[in-house]
Design a protein around this nucleic acid. Sequence first.
DNA 1: AAATTTGGTTTATTTTATAAACTACTTTAT
DNA 2: ATAAAGTAGTTTATAAAATAAACCAAATTT
Lengths: 96, 96
Amino acid sequence: MADFKELDPLLHSQLRLAIMSLLMSVESAEFVYIKEKTGATAGNLSVQLDKLATAGYIGVTKEFKGKKPLTTCSITKRGIEAFEKYVESLKTYFKN
Amino acid sequence: MADFKELDPLLHSQLRLAIMSLLMSVESAEFVYIKEKTGATAGNLSVQLDKLATAGYIGVTKEFKGKKPLTTCSITKRGIEAFEKYVESLKTYFKN
DNA sequence: AAATTTGGTTTATTTTATAAACTACTTTAT
DNA sequence: ATAAAGTAGTTTATAAAATAAACCAAATTT
């Protein structure tokens, strides 16, 4: 694009952006918490977390809390950088 | 979404957002000009302009300048409102 | 007069997003 | 003890979107 900067397609998705936004402001968050805050379905959330994890934007740990599975996510340095770059790129769409 | 506002899917697309951003700052713009400024291919641009026009976000007029076709676009009141609402919604992803 | 360019549109392909179905296990009620 | 319902997800299938490629009609250039 000539005047508008590229928007990282991984972040330019409503749900993934919400996930990242949330993880930006918190040290870590559990699957269920993210699900509630974003209003996503479990299936969709699972898929999108995978994509973010595969890109190295978030770290995901799976353990057991008592007898239930517990998935915890946190943003990585790389994720923070990508998020910040996305914000900068977005600005080129709103100058004026 | 609980904490994050819906992002109008019609605007949450890199190319359509660029088109709208551009049309926000100008009274009208020609197909070729938009194509250059956004870096889009003609085919993609044609399709996306159609979608914006169908939604009533932009007006499109097709005439002939001399012997060549000339497609001119301008944002509508409705388009301006949608754009502004999108900006407001986006902000919920960047508070903090 | 053949080849290229201009200004597009249409169709096809790929990618994404989303929903629906399923798994594995736990808790609650009967 | 067992059936029903709930939790915490994953996997698979479907729908929608983005994009590229092919095409069209006319004009211009070589």
